[in-house]
């Protein structure tokens, strides 16, 4: 964990209620699947947001406006400073992917898939990605994933774009995959758990206090014992999950 003051270099609306914020600062130590915790003016608890992408100097967060914290983030301007705790959580382990991993993101579970896809492709793996949304106006990052060189499948619940239905309806369209990485609402994670033939890693969400393992606010039970979503997760192995 590291505490860094970042500067906002862009903050724009990219889909219905979805924003992309790019920040400049010390990104050392960040890995795909981790999250950062932002201190926002006037709000007591920090706000945990998953890492979408990062480079040596920039950090990209893609977030959906769902409450007070994200509403406030959406109004922040270029040049503003933000106090951020980085390097939080146990991210995805790319070493387990095999040759052709499948990445499945639903809604705001899509962003963490981006840094992971980038990592896996840089390691020479052949990456397929299923991106699930409710409807056309909520879709984001489809082109970005394609530009990385991933095979991209989009699903929408209303069928306005791509395959009609849920992410699990597209799993059968992907050829042989060797491993699965996923992030999304818990109901989706459970459906993916039941739909896939291989092992995989699942990223969970919970209301957090500190975000770095001190308060025990986000503990869940796993087959390997109690785990803190913020510190031992958010990524759990398929084999340890208890629904």
């Amino acid at each position: 964990m590291k505490q860094t003051i970042f500067q906002i270099i862009s903050n724009k609306n990219i889909a219905k209620d979805v924003y992309e914020m790019v920040l400049e600062g010390d990104t050392s130590g960040i890995t795909p699947g981790q999250f950062v915790n932002l201190k926002l003016e006037g709000l007591y608890l920090r706000r945990p947001i998953s890492v979408c992408d990062y480079s040596d100097k920039t950090l990209t967060l893609v977030y959906k406006v769902v409450g007070k914290g994200t509403e406030q983030m959406a109004k922040m301007n270029v040049g503003e400073s933000v106090d951020v705790l980085t390097g939080l959580g146990n991210g995805y382990n790319s070493a387990k992917s095999g040759e052709s991993p499948l990445l499945i993101g639903g809604g705001v579970g899509v962003p963490p898939m981006y840094a992971l896809a980038k990592r896996l492709i840089s390691e020479g793996k052949s990456v397929s990605v299923i991106l699930g949304f409710n409807k056309a106006e909520e879709i984001f990052y489809e082109e970005e994933f394609k530009k990385l060189g991933a095979e991209v499948y989009v699903t929408t619940v209303d069928g306005s774009v791509g395959t009609k239905g849920f992410v699990t309806d597209a799993v059968g369209m992907v050829g042989d995959y060797t491993y699965v990485y996923t992030c999304g609402p818990e109901v989706m994670l459970k459906a993916v758990y039941n739909a896939i033939k291989t092992s995989g890693q699942f990223s969970f969400e919970e209301r957090m206090g500190c975000g770095f393992g001190a308060c025990m606010g986000c503990t869940c039970k796993t087959k390997y014992g109690n785990k803190r979503i913020c510190k031992d997760g958010p990524v759990l192995e398929k084999e340890e999950i208890i629904w």
Binding site: L43, Y44, L45, E206, R207, G209, C215, M216, G217, T219
Partner: peptide, 13 residues
Amino acid sequence: TPRIAECASGMLN
């Protein structure tokens, strides 16, 4: 869980 909620200038746990 949830075990945590935000309040004005503080939190519930």
